[in-house]
Design a protein around this nucleic acid. Structure first.
Lengths: 201, 201, 201, 201
DNA sequence: CATGAATGAGCCTTCATTCAT
DNA sequence: GATGAATGAAGGCTCATTCAT
């Protein structure tokens, strides 16, 4: 037995709690210092635990980063998803997606910042249970339905997905920089709707 | 500083050549591995020289990164600038800026990728001779003139600058991913013009 | 600091043991090679541990040197102090100081050699809890009291402190060179007493 | 031919000039920064020449240090020697030696400082043409003659030589620290004469 | 004679990882 | 479950030395 990474079917409550605590500490540290500068030592220090704990609960640094990604996607999906699901039309869904995203960044300023930093650092998630793809597909699906419904112009949805995501990245940075959230949401929503809309000048 | 970076008034030809060679190697390495993973050793290896050479021509890693930044800005300004300067109206200038940028990314796929990576890594340029600010101001100036001229809608130009930059970042990534350049330019130009244009329902 | 130096209130026994072991190894290495040539690698090698250990127990090289200084002062104060405190007159105190110092160098040949080397290397102690100053003041105080009591001649005590310290440095070197300790103590004590005494030829 | 260290019987004038210039630059640099921190690059910079020159005129760093030692001994012998030679009695000779030494340190503040630093750094002179020994022997000879003549007390001359040298080291440091030269000479001379003189209670 | 260029070794530091308790 | 201890690799930097020109 090479010692003991935890990998049970039913994680103990304390395990779960520790993991969450560590993931949150990791998110905060990464948001503050960037992914590469967020050493395990600093994360442990912020969590107020010893360095070994991370090795115990997560087998390696990469797994911790995977957990960070999963956590951000989970919270993001919860925060953004509800509005999207309840939308009547694709356009409303897109609006909900954008507004919800900005609201998410405002409510959890470190989460998306941290996620961006992790991906920017070149980390390749291993446990990828398709969250990223899933979310992208959702946005893609909204666009496709909107085009079909005649609410959006004809476009390359893959590129447009990337554009929308990129525009939302602006919100991540600006929220962190303290820019007013409402103004931000307004400008970004306008831009996204304009970019996808059929309007012709 | 003894073995310190060269700082003559008229740099020798060989100096300039080596520096350029090293900067190019750095750009390629950073574009491929990211700024943090691009160690001086890897850069030197790619350039086919020993590790010490970098320390000789550039005093430190930071100065190498500064040189990378300067190089990218220099090439970028050359590639993008001409079209912008010759534009008749703010709208044309914006079009030229966007199209020129995408063309620049296509012609030098690693340059902007590398620049983005350097900034994402948290590097703070020291020799900042204001290139970055200058370029941002240029975009900001285009927007302001366009608004004044009634070609663009009223907007927060600071946020819109960030949005446009962010949209262009999509081009950087997609070009690297091999997406067709023309299609890319088209979608991005459309998005930018729509985002800045006067709404027309 | 993640893997940083330990800084608990109650250092574990093993910590204290390792630290002591490393400090001793450092003292020996410095005494043998000089402060600058005593790299952390060589110290670790002499201690029979890996290089990283020093980084673990001491945050940096400077802190290791500080610990060396503290150790030498601690041992020195213990060895020399008792005799000085029990002295009846300033002259006796000075004698005790000199004799005790030589005895100290004889008993711990590397300690003072190492300390001298550290200071000669230009190291500036950070944790300086005033030991150095304290010790100098003590010598200065002995001289002042002796002058006042009429046992010593009138003199510039600051310069004389330096002279006495410098004469004692001879003992450090000669002890290391294997000169007979008694003879050494005798000559040095004579010199110091003569230099401070009122006797006129 | 492995290229070219100069080693002629009759050195060119320009060679000699360059060598002196470099040695002086080395002395100043070492006095200011210490022997280990005085890299060849810094010495060359202070001399206003390129780095390669040192390698050309001196084969290696060690030879440069040897030249520094030789230069200091040469100047020192010139400055101190005359007074000593002309002294009538051993006591006068010792006085002249001490006073001359302090004067030497005052006139050339960096020379002896540099020499001390070189030896403290652990440098072992290779070209030792016996200057050091010669000078020590001279002091030793003065002491022996003085004892024989009944001017000095009976003593271990080897140890006393070291003590006197060590006392003079105080002058080197204090002169560099800006202490008044006259006061210094007075205290030091008194100490040396007292240490060597016949006790007179 | 002199220079700039290049090299490679060595140093200090940081860090992810492993392990015994 | 959790901790402190230890390791070894890698990175950036300095520097003495060598060499072609």
């Amino acid at each position: 037995m090479p010692s003991a990474r935890v990998e049970r079917d039913t994680p103990t409550f304390i395990q779960s709690a520790r993991r969450t605590q560590l993931v949150v500490a990791a998110i905060d540290t990464i948001a503050e210092l960037g992914a590469e500068r967020a050493s395990l030592g600093k994360v442990a220090e912020r969590a107020g635990v010893s360095r070994g704990v991370i090795g115990y609960h997560f087998g390696s640094r990469d797994e911790l980063l995977d957990a960070v990604i999963a956590e951000v996607y989970a919270v993001g999906a919860r925060e953004v998803g509800t509005g999207v699901v309840g939308a009547a039309t694709p356009r409303d869904a897109l609006s909900a997606f954008v507004s919800g995203s900005v609201a998410f960044y405002t409510k959890y300023p470190q989460h998306m910042q941290s996620l961006t930093a992790v991906f920017a650092s070149g980390h390749q998630p291993r446990n990828d249970r398709g969250e990223h793809a899933a979310e992208l597909l959702e946005l893609d699906s909204i666009l496709r339905r909107g085009i079909e419904a005649g609410q959006f112009r004809s476009m390359d949805t893959e590129i447009m997905c990337a554009i929308i995501r990129s525009i939302l990245d602006v919100a991540v940075k600006k929220v962190a920089a303290g820019v007013d959230s409402e103004l931000l949401a307004e400008e970004i929503l306008h831009s996204v709707l304009a970019a996808t809309g059929k309007a012709d000048p």
